[in-house]
């Protein structure tokens, strides 16, 4: 799948800082670990019930800059680990497959923060299968995505198991619960 890294504005900002501001520039060149000052306030993350700390998920570069208005953009909050074409750009929706395709019964599940309510949601990255690649709005976000020997968090696998055609068309991001 094409490489379209999209995490975006904040990363670009960091790079610009690293490239142009002299002191940061020197630090960056030296490569010393520096701490990015949050440009946006850190969001509260609800984890009161079980006591699990999900706050770390709210502090990734993606989560800090994610938006909740436009689901055809790679920085839409629930796309924190999506890889592929957004079905919202292909005639489908965030949980809707475009005509002529079918959702796979299998997927992998990531965790993204909704900045509007501060909650961590479990997101099933469910591929729509059965037609040729939509190839629009290609995104490749990588929050907590890992390699194929740990498939339950890999976004490069064609998650079209159990569908009549394994041809990959696009990816949806379905809310399947809250991360407790």
């Amino acid at each position: 799948m094409p490489d379209h890294s999209s995490d975006a504005r904040f990363e670009r900002l960091l790079r610009r800082l690293a490239g142009h501001s002299s002191r940061r520039g020197i630090l960056a060149r030296l490569g010393a670990t520096i701490v990015a000052a949050p440009v946006f306030p850190l969001l509260p993350v609800s984890h009161a019930q079980s006591g699990k700390d999900r706050s770390v998920r709210g502090k990734t570069g993606f989560a800090r800059t994610a938006q909740t208005k436009d689901d055809t953009q790679c920085d839409y909050w629930r796309y924190c680990a999506i890889d592929g074409s957004l079905c919202t750009c292909c005639g489908g929706g965030v949980h809707t497959c475009p005509p002529g395709t079918e959702p796979s019964p299998t997927s992998w599940v990531g965790t993204c923060i909704n900045p509007d309510d501060g909650r961590a949601y479990l997101i099933a990255y469910r591929d729509c299968c059965g037609s040729s690649a939509c190839n629009r709005c290609n995104c490749d976000n990588t929050d907590r995505a890992t390699e194929i020997y740990r498939p339950s968090t890999n976004n490069d696998i064609i998650w079209c198991f159990g569908v009549s055609s394994m041809e990959y068309h696009c990816s949806t991001a379905v809310v399947v619960g809250t991360a407790e």
Partner: peptide, 16 residues
């Protein structure tokens, strides 16, 4: 609720 959430997060992708 935590058990269900853990199931969905770690198992629910493949098992539904």
């Amino acid at each position: 609720a935590a058990a269900r959430s853990d199931y969905i997060e770690h198992c629910g992708g493949c098992h539904g």
